[in-house]
């Protein structure tokens, strides 16, 4: 319209300064970061000192009551215990298996791709669906696991494996219904689902190791595979390991899908698999105890922050070789 005839001076004024432009470009992201990440984090902190519940007309300060509950009530003690057990089992196992698989696959002449594909499948699959499949497989009577185990009854395997003999005589375990097994089954599914991811990261790390280093190690007299691993592979995978452990830790703390699907009543037999995320969901949403839920959230955030800070420390200390 008028733009064509606008004098140059007006046009120049119309062009926004680079400063304003830059802020405008980052404004949506900034606003969303603030509203979706920072404000909720702060409100969780605030809410954790209250007895807030949705729909309630008033809100009372309860100080540290919610936190006190976390550390005194037995159900929360079970929650911390279950979560920590889960993390301490799943992280080393899935990192170790991921590394082991990566080393084995990397040393293969042929067939690398097929193993890589298979091991990665669980990472892609909807965890909830797979948890339900596992539940079916662990079904005490019609499940594949117990059926397979029963096939071993009455054979020589029974004499070698007392656990199996016991199962044959007194009935196979009921897995998810048994508090001695439930948590371990959840751990197993976590490992099953996660180690392929770690494997892929380790494989990427392995391809980044210069071949010359292995040659140098050989020239320097490192004769066994273990010596080469200690001298070259393991140190070179250091940064990968720090990252893999961190991300596996954070994911392990967030376990929810499996426990929610396997134990709809909440937490499994005698709350032996009562995980933090599930507790937040149960307290905060199902029971509308937002204050307690917020306190668990804060505890959860604390764990995650500690892990990440440790990771960043380790990463920064690492001097990279260019």
């Amino acid at each position: 319209m008028v733009a064509v005839d606008m004098p140059p001076q007006t046009r120049r004024r119309a062009a926004r300064s680079p400063q304003t432009m830059a802020w405008l470009l980052s404004a949506p992201a900034l606003a969303l970061m603030l509203l979706i990440l920072l404000v909720p984090m702060l409100s969780a902190l605030v809410l954790s000192f209250t007895d807030y519940s949705l729909g309630a007309t008033e809100l009372n300060w309860v100080g540290l009551d919610n936190y006190e509950k976390l550390f005194t009530r037995s159900s929360y003690e079970k929650m911390l215990w279950a979560t920590l057990t889960y993390v301490l089992v799943v992280v080393p196992m899935s990192v170790g298996l991921g590394l082991g698989a990566a080393l084995l696959i990397n040393s293969l002449g042929r067939g690398r791709e097929i193993y890589k594909t298979i091991y990665f499948l669980p990472v892609m699959a909807t965890l909830l669906a797979m948890a339900i499949v596992w539940e079916l497989m662990l079904h005490p009577t019609i499940g594949m696991v117990n059926r397979t185990l029963e096939m071993g009854c009455g054979t020589w395997i029974e004499s070698l494996w007392p656990w199996l003999a016991d199962g044959c005589a007194n009935g196979m375990p009921i897995w998810l219904g048994d508090k001695d097994y439930a948590l371990w089954v959840v751990c197993f599914i976590g490992i099953w689902q996660g180690f392929g991811f770690n494997m892929v990261l380790y494989l990427a790390g392995l391809t980044g190791i210069p071949r010359d280093l292995y040659n140098a190690a050989e020239m320097d007299g490192a004769r066994s595979a273990w010596e080469r691993f200690r001298l070259v592979t393991w140190p070179a995978l250091g940064p990968t390991t720090v990252f893999v452990v961190t991300i596996t830790c954070i994911r392990a703390f967030q376990v929810f899908d499996t426990v929610e699907a396997l134990f709809p009543r909440g937490g499994g037999p005698s709350k032996s698999a009562y995980m933090m995320m599930f507790a937040i969901y149960e307290k905060g949403i199902k029971q509308n105890l937002i204050g307690v839920g917020a306190a668990i959230t804060m505890l959860f955030l604390l764990f995650v922050m500690i892990i990440t800070v440790i990771q960043r420390r380790l990463t920064e200390r690492k001097v990279h070789y260019s």
Binding site: P210, L213, N215, A216, E218, M219, D220, G221, V232, Y321
Partner: peptide, 16 residues
């Protein structure tokens, strides 16, 4: 490893 030779590599191949 058993030939008793030393080698200097183009990339130096130092253990980082």
């Amino acid at each position: 490893a058993d030939r008793n030779l030393s080698m200097v590599f183009q990339s130096y191949a130092l253990y980082p």
